[in-house]
């Protein structure tokens, strides 16, 4: 019967499948192979040492593949860590910016309290634009006439006087800085008490010149300069008194004698303005 190759194949195939199913059924759920345990023991006894030997021999190959796998994993980790690092750096930058803003606002509040500026109805504003010249003579802020901002109102920051409002729209306003050529602020030097006017210094962007009324002044380098708050006369000012403007940075004796001019460095960092306050009510003019 088994001489027919087709029949033989079918019989052998059926036999093998049958044996497989019997084995499956007999050993399913049994961890020790049931009745075939002795067979398994023999196989393990014979093949166990071979398997151990082969495992030892192939260990370098496994290690090599493992090295490649570890390298690939490390590359993936490096990519992930770089992403995390960049994210943390962004957070640090954001945090530093928040700290700086907090510091500026604290200084603003501190100045406002120290000088009693609450009566001037201060309006906080953020600088949103800057004139594109190296002189930085004007800046744009995000508050305008809708917030009570009007032309000629004084503008300060946490360090001192910044400038005056020179133009307004309902939502924005332009601040002309004290370093602008059109600007002039009545001031006095604390100490000798000399009064004068602070204007933009010729040929030195960002610096101020104080034109003294008296040629025989006892003013010295380092003397603080504050707003005079003069209410009448030729030096009548828009600024409340005693707002810090700057300090005397250089005195040329010849120029002091001839022109009565000393160099003043502004107290406020006019090149890096972020938060400013507009004093929207001048109480002394009422």
């Amino acid at each position: 019967m088994l001489n027919d190759p087709f029949r033989r194949r079918r019989v052998v195939l059926a036999l093998l499948v049958g044996v497989s199913l019997v084995l499956l059924t007999a050993t399913f759920g049994s961890s020790d192979s049931g009745p075939l345990r002795p067979v398994r023991n023999v196989v393990m006894t014979v093949l166990g040492p071979i398997e151990e030997g082969a495992s030892a021999v192939l260990k370098p190959v496994r290690d090599l593949f493992g090295w490649f796998g570890s390298t690939l994993d490390a590359k993936g980790d490096a990519k992930r860590f770089k992403k995390e690092r960049d994210e943390l750096r962004r957070q640090i930058v954001d945090g530093k910016a928040a700290l700086a803003e907090n510091d500026r606002l604290r200084r603003l509040v501190g100045l406002s309290r120290r000088l009693g500026l609450s009566d001037y109805r201060p309006v906080s504003a953020t600088v949103i634009g800057r004139s594109p010249t190296v002189w930085f003579a004007t800046v744009q802020i995000d508050h305008g006439s809708d917030d009570g901002v009007r032309v000629n109102q004084p503008v300060i920051d946490g360090d001192g006087v910044v400038g005056i409002i020179s133009a307004v729209t309902p939502g924005t306003a332009v601040v002309t800085l004290i370093t602008d050529r059109e600007s002039g602020v009545s001031v006095r030097a604390i100490g000798p008490g000399d009064e004068g006017t602070v204007v933009a210094a010729d040929g030195t962007p960002g610096m101020l010149s104080m034109e003294l009324l008296s040629r025989h002044s006892g003013i010295r380098v380092g003397d603080p300069i504050v707003t005079a708050g003069t209410r009448s006369g030729p030096l009548a000012t828009l600024f409340p008194p005693n707002l810090p403007v700057g300090f005397v940075s250089r005195i040329d004796p010849d120029r002091l004698q001839t022109d009565g001019v000393v160099e003043v460095r502004p107290q406020a960092d006019l090149n890096h303005l972020d938060e400013v306050v507009v004093l929207t009510r001048s109480t002394w003019r009422q």
Partner: peptide, 17 residues
Amino acid sequence: LDLLLIQTLGQYALIYL
């Protein structure tokens, strides 16, 4: 392989068959 891996006998046998 079933014997080596100590699992239900006949699984690999049937599939490799």
